[in-house]
Nucleic acid binder design. Structure first.
Length: 450
DNA sequence: CTTGCCGGGCT
DNA sequence: AGCCCGGCAAG
């Protein structure tokens, strides 16, 4: 069953589209034509002025759209009734005229207006064949090229309907009508994806990352699309849609990881895809060497790092290179750039003062290893310094103050403990009363001085 | 740990 | 100035 139908639709020129099917029939059934006229009119109304001249296109477009729905239904119906096969669209109309109409309406609404709808609907139920006939013209025109036209038209319509995000499509479609399969394929795929998913970001990313994924996609898309059209299965369509969306993304991600080489030179965030490239860059730009010369002492190695880049991110990030590190991602960028960079680059160019040398270098290293510990290290350094000094300070400062006036000697000369026993010893704690005031006050005993 | 006492704070 | 105490250093 399905096979037959499928074949037929193809004949009609992708009868998939309702119109297409109807059109096909027409050839079979001359009647339909006239009767269909009414329907056509309605359709035309919906479509608008252009229809009169390009009626075919419009109809085709509509049909195309209808196809989706019709196709799905058709299949079902055919299963129920073999007769329907031949005139899939027409039959449908007759049998399910209302349904078809409804669908058409739904689809039609975007393209056209209400007025046409009623006319179309009424006729369709009553004159199912006519509808088909209306479509007929399209098939005629099509012939071999007709398919393409239809497709193109469909694409155009879709594009238009979907919105106009892809202005390109319209243009392409317009030109595409004339153009061969390629054009329509492209436009189709583009419009399709855009219309269906409306996932622009995705498309953009694809384009940005022209790598393998996108091409296959377009092809796949086209194929799947065609298949869906031919089969006229809603299911298939949905499936195809899935492929379109699901597949692409995964693929990208799969292939998205790439090794890049990032220049670590201060303020230079150059990222190249090859080590040789980055080395040359460093040699030439930063080391001021002759770029051509292969001579390399390996110094460049210190100025670039190998990074794994998620192409998705990269694509986004590349445009904004500044932030640097979507590529490098999180932590690395910050610490390496700030600390490492300085530490690495400085050594070569900057001479530290004796003091700075010891500490700073250490700091740098530490920082490099533990980005967020930077402050810690500082603290440490400070603390170390403080430790020593403070100790002296307290004593010194005090001493100083005192010393100035009285006594370095004091500090240094703490009165050696007198050998003589003192009040405390003599009287003991119990007889504290007997102690000399000095002793009571914890001062140098005045009673038993040495 | 004990003792002696300096340095300091509080009243 | 007197009183008191924390704390250090010598023993």
């Amino acid at each position: 069953m399905t096979s037959k139908r499928l074949l037929e639709p193809q004949r009609a020129g992708d009868c998939t589209p309702e119109g297409g099917c109807t059109g096909q029939r027409e050839p079979v059934t001359g009647k339909a034509f006239k009767t269909n006229t009414q329907l056509h009119e309605g359709a035309i109304r919906n479509l608008s002025k252009e229809i009169s001249q390009n009626g075919h296109y419009h109809t085709s477009t509509r049909h195309y759209i209808h196809k989706k729905f019709a196709c799905g239904r058709e299949e079902e119906e055919p299963s129920s009734g073999g007769l329907l096969k031949h005139g899939c669209p027409a039959h449908r109309l007759v049998l399910n005229g209302f349904r078809v109409q409804d669908q058409t309406q739904v689809e039609a609404r975007s393209p056209v207006r209400g007025p046409g709808e009623p006319a179309c609907r009424l006729p369709s139920p009553e004159m199912p064949h006519p509808n088909t006939s209306s479509i007929i013209p399209v098939p005629h025109d099509r012939s071999p090229s007709g398919h393409a036209d239809k497709e193109v038209m469909a694409a155009t319509v879709l594009t238009t309907l979907s919105t106009s995000p892809l202005v390109l499509n319209p243009s392409s479609s317009a030109s595409g009508v004339d153009l061969a399969g390629k054009a329509w394929k492209e436009s189709l795929s583009a419009s399709y994806s855009s219309s269906t998913s409306g996932n622009w970001s995705w498309d953009a990313s694809d384009q940005s990352v022209p790598s393998t994924p996108s091409p296959p996609l377009s092809n796949d898309t086209g194929k799947s699309f065609l298949l869906s059209c031919q089969s006229d299965d809603n299911n298939e369509e949905s499936e195809s849609t899935h492929f379109l969306f699901e597949d692409p993304i995964p693929r990208k991600r799969k292939n998205s990881m790439k090794v890049m080489f990032k220049c670590l030179w201060k303020n230079c965030e150059k990222v190249l895809s090859t080590s040789s490239g980055i080395q040359r860059h460093i040699r030439t730009v930063h080391l001021g060497r002759n770029g051509d010369s292969d001579y390399s002492d390996g110094e460049e190695d210190f100025y670039y790092s190998e990074i794994e880049v998620n192409m998705d991110t990269l694509s986004e990030g590349l445009s904004n290179l500044t932030p640097t590190s979507p590529t490098t991602s999180g932590p690395p960028p910050v610490f390496p750039v700030l600390t490492c960079d300085v530490s690495r680059t400085e050594p070569a160019n900057v001479i530290h003062t004796p003091l700075s040398q010891s500490a700073p270098s250490a700091l740098c290293h530490i920082r490099t290893d533990h980005a967020y510990q930077g402050p810690m290290t500082q603290i440490r350094t400070v603390s170390i310094g403080e430790k020593r000094q403070p100790v002296n300070h307290t004593t010194v400062s005090k001493t100083h103050t005192n010393s100035t006036s009285t006594s370095k000697p004091t500090t240094g000369t703490r009165k050696p403990r007198g050998e003589a026993k003192k009040c405390r010893k003599v009287y003991g704690m119990e007889k504290k009363d007997l102690w000399c005031t000095a002793c009571r006050w914890k001062k140098a005993c005045q009673r038993f001085t040495d």
